[in-house]
């Protein structure tokens, strides 16, 4: 149970974390280079000249460029993988989701990094990325990418690193009131050449899909293993108990209990064993999530009520399955055996 809950919590935690910042960006539609699906594996580069074409599309209320780039960084010998976003003060684009310490916006030579890196660095530390040195002036939250994190610098700082004049990575589009977002997406795709557009939620999903695609099959296999182990443990426990108590079951048969009534006893025992195991497992999973998470930042466990409920349902199903073999044993107990002393 612990294994299943922890894995499900990790999956949920990672999925939510990776999409958290993208979901917080104020945009109805993300416009990107054709063929670019997500920020991490298929980056996008667009000409700023396309901004005017997109602005003309029916239903577009506003548009802002959004630049970001993945960079290897280092601070006092500690390596970090950062996804550096350009804060564009003029366009009010590329702000952190929220700042929990230090300055809220980066100035020249400054960087705000995600609080998930706070075990490695502190405010005031120097950090080197792409040969440029930055001073950490703030900690933001909501930008944890598990294996990396979002960081924020002034737009001209990222421009100097990227050296792509007249280019940006994405456009953030807002839709006029009364227009369907899907319709505007289609309008952009049909009216502007070589760009792709997706609604904001879909873009966030495209980024979390990386986790789902890589993590879900592993979770599925491990959950199957967990279920098999659970059935074996509950089954063995109940089977052993049934064998130990087979004489008492024989007595109950002799007294007049029907097989169905005895099966109910065994199923109740199996369900009780399952629920107790589930309770202990869930408790352990919560404790593990808190304790391990405080030492290992990548251990982001989000245990949802819905997940707890389906795992409980799975436990109950496992318990009933586990009762089958003991029940078969019970069916063959001869009540006349009770006369043997």
């Amino acid at each position: 149970m612990t294994l299943i809950i922890v894995l499900t919590g990790l999956y949920q935690g990672w999925s939510n974390k990776i999409g958290e910042y993208i979901r917080s960006v104020p945009a109805d539609i993300w416009v990107m280079q054709l063929g670019s699906e997500n920020m991490f594996h298929t980056p996008s580069t667009l000409s700023l000249s396309e901004q005017a074409d997109i602005e003309k599309v029916n239903g577009v209320a506003g548009i802002k460029p959004f630049s970001a780039r993945r960079l290897a960084a280092e601070s006092a010998g500690k390596a970090m993988d950062l996804y550096v976003v350009a804060y564009d003060q003029a366009n009010d684009s590329g702000k952190p989701k929220s700042v929990i310490g230090g300055n809220s916006l980066p100035g020249p030579g400054e960087i705000i990094i995600d609080a998930s890196q706070s075990k490695k660095v502190k405010i005031g530390d120097k950090i080197v990325a792409a040969g440029r040195q930055f001073k950490i002036t703030g900690f933001s939250e909501g930008g944890d990418l598990v294996t990396s994190s979002f960081a924020f610098v002034a737009k001209n700082e990222l421009d100097k690193i990227q050296e792509l004049p007249g280019q940006t990575n994405y456009f953030l589009v807002s839709v006029k009131p009364g227009f369907s977002t899907d319709k505007v997406v289609n309008n952009i795709k049909s009216e502007v050449k070589d760009v792709d557009a997706v609604i904001s939620q879909k873009f966030a999903d495209n980024n979390t899909k990386i986790v789902k695609d890589n993590f879900l099959p592993v979770i599925f296999i491990l959950v199957l293993i967990g279920v098999a182990v659970g059935i074996a443990v509950i089954g063995l426990t109940i089977f052993t108990s049934t064998i130990e108590k087979s004489r008492e079951y024989g007595v109950l048969k002799a007294i007049g209990l029907k097989n169905r009534q005895l099966y109910n006893i065994v199923i109740a025992q199996a369900l009780l064993a399952g629920v107790i195991g589930f309770g202990i497992g869930a408790g352990l999973a919560f404790v593990l999530g808190k304790v391990v998470g405080s030492y290992v930042p990548q251990f982001i466990s989000q245990i949802r009520f819905f997940d707890v409920m389906w795992i409980l349902a799975l436990t109950l199903a496992m318990s009933i399955l586990a009762a089958i073999i003991p029940i078969r044993r019970l069916a063959h107990i001869d009540p006349a055996e009770v006369f043997k002393s």
């Binding site: 008492e248 007595v251 109950l252 002799a254 007049g256 029907k258 009770v338 006369f339 002393s341």
Partner: peptide, 22 residues
């Protein structure tokens, strides 16, 4: 078997050498 179980419950009482209490 079920009819016999009902019968034992209503009509018969058993006492065993080794008591056979639960």
């Amino acid at each position: 078997d079920n009819q016999l179980a009902s019968l034992r419950l209503r009509k018969f009482g058993f006492i065993f050498q080794s008591f056979n209490l639960l």
